[in-house]
Design a binder for these strands. Sequence first.
DNA 1: CTGCCCCAGTGGTCTTTGTAACCA
DNA 2: GTGGTTACTTTGACCACTGGGGCA
Length: 950
Amino acid sequence: MENESSDEEFDWEEVHVPEAQPFHQQFELELVPRENIEITLHTQEKKDDSKKKAAAALHAQRVLRTTCHKVHTVCLLANARVRNKWLNDELLHARLISLTPMSIQNAFAMIHKSRFPDQNKRGRLFEAAVNRLVDWWSETFFTVLPTGHIRTRTFEEVQQEIESQANGSHSIDFDDDDSERIRSVNSLMKHALMQNGTRDISSQLFTALCRALDIPARLIVSLQSVPWRSDTGKHSGGSSRKGKAPMTPGESDNSLEVNELSEIDHPNTSTSVEKGKSRQQSGGLHFHLVMEANGKEKAAPIIKLRKTRSRAASRRSTPSVVGKISKSSDPTCTPPVFWTEVFSRADSRWLPVDPIRGIVNKRHVFDPSGPQYVETSSKASRIQDNRMLYVVALEEDGFGRDVTARYARDYTAKVSKAQGLGAGPAGARKEWWERVVQSITRPYRLNRDELEDDELHNHQLTEGMPTTLAGFKDHPLYVLARHLKRDQIIDPPTELGKFRGEPVYPRSCVIFLKTAENWMRQGRIIRFGCQSMKMVKQRASTIGRQREMELALERAKTEGHSGDAGEVMQGLYAYSQTDLYRPDPIRDGIIPKNEFGNIDLYVPSMLPQGATHIPFKGIAKIAKRLGFDYAEAVTGFEFKKRRAYPVIEGIVVAAENENTIIEAYIEAEQDAEERARAKHFDQMCKRWVRLIQGLRIRDRLQMQYSSNPVEEQARDKHWQDTEIHEADEEEPGGFLTTADDVVEPFHLPSNMHKFALPGDNDQSGKVIQAAADPSSLILAEMPSHDWESQGGNGVMLIDDDPATLNRPIDVVPKTMRELAEYHAQLEETKRNEGSLPSSVEPDASSASVNTRKKTERSGVQQPSSYDSKSTPYSATKRAQSSRKRIRRPNESASGDEARTSPSKRARRRNSNVADTAPSPRVLRPRAPKSAAKAQEEHEIEEAYKRAVEE
DNA sequence: CTGCCCCAGTGGTCTTTGTAACCA
DNA sequence: GTGGTTACTTTGACCACTGGGGCA
């Protein structure tokens, strides 16, 4: 089976087969091996399959990682925005102000234009004041806790944590010691009053303080989202990290840090307190183990790890090691995740402020990949807890800006690419990030935004050449010849410098080339005499082009050009070598055509002078009919199955013919519309006629037969019993068939037709259980057909039951006449016996009467197999005649109605009085209708329903 | 040891004008 | 007779990105 279904995937082993034998014979021989012919089918190694699976899994994981990255990034951004909003709290502002020394406040207040007219001086003063504020904040006011700040986790780490949490073992918990919880602005205020918190809180509160001091301040956040790449920030195995070599301060591993902390924290012995001060300028390296006086009560006294040093110091040396502590990433000396930007009004620019380390206006100290943070990481496995990828500045009004370019080193060479500058899936990521940024961007622009954009752009320009090969790739300023694409060239080749011996060119010198054909698709033509700037191998994407190439090759071979080694080259041209294509103006109304008999109109400029494009579908016919010369306009191509299909949009004609053609076209359109409308109207009328006729018939039948309610009831009972017969008969006539159809089409339950009697022509072997005595019917034997469940009084119809097959069936009449006779006979017998159940009598009599009536009218036809089934039905009905049918007054069933539309009655009964007497009839299904007819009937039915409802 | 290069696999982009039979 | 539809046939070439492995 499997081999047959997917033989494409199997290799056919070549075996010797007698040539005269056709394939089917071989196959037979294989099946019945009379000769020694062997056909071996062997599957390809499973390797391929597993490879495919692995690749699919890989792909799925990549998608998962990317999605996680995106979701995480957005969540972090949302978190930062919420915090940023909290920072505007007035109470928080008031409290922070109240804690700030007046001297520092005054330093800002005194900077005013009136007092210092020199703008530069104001700028310097402002920066100095900020410096003082930051120094006070970082060294005196706020104490930074060593843990709890946001950090990057690798994908694997997070996954591990989730898994461990899912397993119930909360070995690593985000909530416990690893991250702080700030639930509201009150938590922030608490930290402000306690004057301690994580470095994140420090930055956030500092930002709030700046705002309180009426300094425009932004909360800057470097989003630490889960990397989408599995190897980014990877470490050599989860648990083995502990034993790893010491890390640089910058390359901190926070899980390590947590471990260390617990080692320090838990033994209460290590609670030495050291207080000290270090100024940024001092260049000293200090460790402050600060016991928090007002630390959280739940935790053991927390040791504050404090290591303040200047950048010079950090660059100069590795930190001295004090036990394990030095190994940890000290949050007070590594680049933060949150920091502040204050706006210097005098300079009209944003100053970066790191309130944790006390650094002002040094934009390069925030990138954790900076040399001062990575220099000593030689031995440690590269684990980053801070990756700079997206840096967002959140302003007081809640809007944000992407300021990554200000802080990231090698922004253009590395970070912008990491953000997804490149094509393909990375490009999609870039687009996504742009969308995210767009969603938080202020809808209008301020002057300072413009200035900042310029500044950021200049940062990129002054970034300098990349130091890696990859950095040159897609670099906005530089390009290497090796990274040029097939259709690119450097012109003029102005060399900017060398990268490992390779010339570096400015990106602006890169120009795009196209083949002459492709220029033509743009409506441009190669200027006469121009030489191609580059020769490339021709591609053959369509069969036609492939053949062309083969022919060219053949020709080249025969002519003896063996040097080309079987490659057809084509020239590429630059835009500057082309002119706008101007087709010849048309003369005498004759449209110039190409070799395919149409006209190229890829761009509007390709329209010949004196011609018009009429882009209507089907207008070619009109032009042809009118006898004007025209050409179909090819506006593009579609590609399917290695073929190019021209897209034709209307025609091109001489301008003087335009009006005539359009008028004719409109006329033709109106004509066609009129015809369509007439046709539609016609159909509509026909349907109405049918509907009205059907309704009139229905009405007439009701008028005729619904006069006597008692009689009606009896008749109804009868017809309930006997309608089964009629359904099996041919419809009496076309007119009535129509009415039937109109009034209510009937759809037979799918399982009904299965039942037939043995002894009938039907050989299906299905049996209707029947008995002369209705009481012998056993309802319980019914299989659970739908119609049984509707009322439980269905006919006993049992499939393929051997017991049923043996039942006597000779009492079953086969035709209507026989049925009538049977009823009459039955009636008589019962009358004679005098033991007729009261409920049966009217039923039986009416049945016989009506049956007779019916048989008289339509004649007895068709001793069909279905006919005979009616008897058991009526018998069953009688057996259950104790159940009274509830009839709605307008539902006056009559013999005629039943005769004309048994199906309708049945349906109505089933739908309206389903609880009383759903009559499972055994009916012959109609011949399958054509789709059109079915549709028509459906429409009619709908129309009828609407009419009846009103 | 890190960063770069190479390789394999995958996915996106570029490509740029049939014909015969059948049916309404 | 004409116009529209469908089956037929055979599944491209190239480049860039990703991830893994090796090497200077």
